[in-house]
């Protein structure tokens, strides 16, 4: 069954405390080549049936209204992945 992947990231201008904590851990591990880390979310929506324009329109709507909060996050990618 096809899967639609939706990726959501905290807005670039906002502090990302999770990413900051991971960046701190990397520094402590001596991985000084990484200057910052940002953490987002990946949603995998399995579709019952073919992915047509209606389904994609639905996903774009869901991504904006439920999967992300436009005040603090951006939807950065929506793509269909082949059957696995």
């Amino acid at each position: 069954m096809p899967t639609i992947v939706v990726e959501v990231m905290p807005k670039a201008e906002l502090l990302d405390p999770q990413g900051k904590a991971v960046a701190g851990a990397l520094r402590r591990l001596g991985k000084s080549e990484f200057s910052s880390v940002r953490i987002g979310k990946r949603f995998e929506l399995t579709v019952d049936g073919p992915v047509d324009d209606t389904v994609l329109a639905d996903v774009r709507d869901i991504a904006q209204t439920l999967l992300s909060n436009g005040v603090i996050e951006d939807v950065v990618a929506i793509r269909t992945e082949d059957d696995r």
Partner: peptide, 17 residues
């Protein structure tokens, strides 16, 4: 209330984690 758009803005993880 912010998620329902009855109030503006949003709430994120505490700065100090």
């Amino acid at each position: 209330l912010t998620e329902a758009h009855l109030l503006p803005g949003g709430l994120i993880r505490n700065e100090a984690g």
